[in-house]
């Protein structure tokens, strides 16, 4: 169960650094997982993006007025940071600034696991989704957010989120139909 981060973060008897440490400890794992999913399985990029999002949250924590849940506020920062990373990665990719040998390309995933390549198949299927569809599917079906929370996190209208979600699920049914039938 998610700890009462808002209460921890806004407790008056803790210093700002202590409150932020508690905030990081409560959100770190989930934030890295969300960034990892949105970035297509790049662990190093996910940790970098999450760290930058936490730095931005540290700077903006004084301006947080409690109008939204603290987790929603932070996830919105994280999603923006992911998008910024993807844009910058795309520009670098177009300009050919990425090294061909040393750097892990976007969407790379860890070596196959003993599950017989299932993880790679799912990752490839997720790569067929557009960025908006992947964001909506990840937030709602993998992170467990509601449509309204997802709309707030992604900065989109709930109707747009529903539309992205519907198309994402349709694509995944088609890509992973054998898994679906097998599960049935």
């Amino acid at each position: 169960m998610e700890p009462p981060v808002t209460e921890i973060a806004l407790a008056a008897d803790l210093t700002r650094a202590q409150r932020f440490d508690a905030f990081v400890a409560a959100h770190r794992d989930r934030a890295v997982a969300l960034a990892w999913r949105l970035l297509g399985g790049d662990r190093a990029a996910a940790e970098d993006v999450t760290q930058q999002a936490f730095v931005k949250a540290w700077r903006g924590l004084d301006g947080f007025r409690g109008e939204a849940k603290l987790s929603t506020w932070f996830h919105r920062i994280l999603v923006r940071q992911v998008r910024s990373h993807q844009r910058w990665h795309g520009v670098r990719d177009k300009l050919g600034l990425l090294s061909k040998d040393g750097e892990v390309p976007q969407g790379a995933i860890e070596p196959p696991t003993p599950d017989g390549g299932m993880q790679q198949r799912i990752a490839q299927a997720m790569q067929t989704l557009s960025a908006g569809q992947r964001e909506a599917f990840t937030c709602i079906h993998l992170e467990g957010l509601t449509v309204e929370e997802t709309a707030a996190v992604l900065g989109r209208a709930p109707g747009t989120v529903k539309s992205h979600l519907h198309r994402a699920l349709k694509k995944l049914r088609a890509e992973l139909n054998d898994l679906r039938e097998e599960a049935a």
């Binding site: 999913r37 996910a46 997720m126 079906h141 992973l176 898994l179 679906r180």
Partner: peptide, 12 residues
Amino acid sequence: RLIDQIRRGYAP
């Protein structure tokens, strides 16, 4: 069940 499989398989 498909979504459950994706959640388990597409997790860091």
